[in-house]
Design a protein around this nucleic acid. Structure first.
Lengths: 215, 215
DNA sequence: AATGAAAGTGAGTAATCACTCATTTTTATT
DNA sequence: AATAAAAATGAGTGATTACTCACTTTCATT
């Protein structure tokens, strides 16, 4: 299964798509992520997909509907349930210690990003300008994820594994470190040589113990 | 002096600009940062500036030249020299300890962001799509800044204040934490209530000692 | 093989795009 | 006040935009 097919499979699962529709989606993802949504014309998408321009509008009323149809499943079908399941696992049979939880969190996010990078880039780029996407993201992804994270932090604080600090601040600091790693790894410097396991471990140890020399 | 005038002053210093040119720049910054460069029309900028569309093209050959004229000074005149001076100070008469250095770094970046937020947003949005901007950013800002940062880290490592870890990784972790704070503070949740001093201190302490409970 | 529905086509449309240029207005210098 | 240069104008340009629609092709069911 090609990379594009994996992406389609992940995004649209059992949804029935014609061959041409698949080509349109793949072409749109490529152009949107490379040039940005506003700078991509439907003409260009049609040509890249090897399809008549009218075909795009058979399937999607507007260009924006095409964008949303690509980006919405990323939020609802993938991140949503994933996070619920993932954190549920943590809460039901929690990882013994924070380190294991952090390692698992980083691993999982890495796997998602690897599969969905172009679509994730589109989301990041367009959320500031598309209120519809932003609202969907906040409601379906950010809010639920955040609640879970705060719970987990509280949990580890009660166990005495994390320092007492407002959970919101703890969350900000841990998330910054994890996303800092993932963004460096996959978006800023994807072509550098990365020892993923080593850098993951460094990130985990940093989150726990910082950079100061212990005396 | 109004907020817009501060911004103009910071960006263009002694450069001579007509009144209408100033209005064009202010309107362009506003539209570009709110809607994105590609989604902003020159007609719209002209109307917002209260100027004929032709006037824009008297001053700037193309729409892209207008973009670059706004964004380039941010890199050369502000960040460039600032970083050189700032880090020079650190290297010549270094801050006693890492904490003080981090506090100063966060403070300085905060001040810049406060003044230049709309233009910074434009840079962040457009760098992925404008090779010209990206190259300028990498050459003039990223490379020099990075060199300095690595030097500083090495320096504190030699003094025994930072753990031995490749400077690149140390840099990534520290920068993630600082930018994580600044992005949360000024871009993601600017309307939340922030105790800047407290959150700065938490960030500094996190970078140094992490989130684990000390035993 | 016949048939109706779904999918696909591509020429066409009005609107909008970045940009031009002949002309007018403002400004600076004397 | 005269004058030349600089700044500003706005109607006009061809190209491109997202989108439509009458028509053709493909497909599934019998």
């Amino acid at each position: 299964m090609s990379e594009d097919e994996v992406l389609l499979q992940q995004l649209f699962e059992e949804e029935k798509l014609t061959d041409k529709q698949k080509k349109i989606i793949i072409a749109a993802i490529e152009s949107f992520s490379e040039k940005g949504y506003a700078a991509t014309s439907t003409n260009e998408i049609a040509k890249k997909a090897g399809v008549a321009e009218g075909t795009i509008f058979r399937h999607y009323k507007t260009k924006k509907e095409l964008l949303v149809s690509i980006v919405a499943p990323l939020m609802t079908k993938l991140i949503g349930p994933f996070i619920v399941n993932d954190f549920h696992k943590v809460l039901d049979r929690p990882y013994e210690n924070v380190e294991d939880f952090l390692r698992a969190a980083i691993k999982n996010r890495s796997d998602i990003i690897k599969k969905m990078l172009p679509v994730i880039k589109i989301v990041i780029q367009e959320i500031p300008f598309q209120p519809e996407l932003r609202e969907q993201f906040i409601e379906q992804v950010a809010r639920k994820t955040f609640e879970r994270i705060l719970q987990v932090i509280k949990d580890y604080q009660d166990k005495g594994q994390l320092i007492e600090m407002p959970t919101l601040s703890v969350a900000r600091l841990a998330i910054s470190s994890i996303f800092g790693f993932l963004i460096s790894r996959y978006i800023l410097f994807p072509d550098s040589e990365w020892d993923d396991e080593l850098e993951t471990e460094r990130t985990v140890q940093f989150i726990m113990h910082g950079l100061a020399v212990k005396d």
